[in-house]
């Protein structure tokens, strides 16, 4: 098992990475029509010119939440009620 400090840094790193990936996904949703989305993306539909704006908004906000999580985890330590 990793010592607490390393564990925390790993968690923060993963959260930042997840945040970046999700915001990139959001941009892909906004820019590309449904037919051009990678086939493993929810909303991919061959031949459709529809833009999944709402999927992009959801990915953006979840990405933002990942950044907020990292922001809190790297803040000063508190005794209780920190979101983890």
């Amino acid at each position: 098992m990793l010592p607490p400090m390393r564990n925390d840094r790993l968690l923060v790193g993963l959260a930042v990475l997840a945040g970046i990936v999700l915001i990139v996904i959001a941009i892909v949703y906004w820019v590309e029509p449904a037919k051009s989305l990678p086939s493993f993306f929810p909303g991919h539909q061959a031949g459709s010119a529809h833009h999944h704006v709402k999927h992009g908004i959801a990915a953006f906000f979840v990405g933002l939440a990942a950044f907020v999580f990292a922001w809190f985890r790297t803040g000063p330590k508190r005794t209780a009620a920190s979101p983890s």
């Binding site: 922001w71 809190f72 790297t74 803040g75 000063p76 209780a80 009620a81 920190s82």
Partner: peptide, 19 residues
């Protein structure tokens, strides 16, 4: 407040409820 302080104060129930 919680974003500014980078954490939720245990007594700040508005921040806790918000999150």
């Amino acid at each position: 407040r919680s974003l500014r302080d980078r954490g939720i104060d245990p007594d700040d129930t508005d921040a806790k409820l918000g999150w």
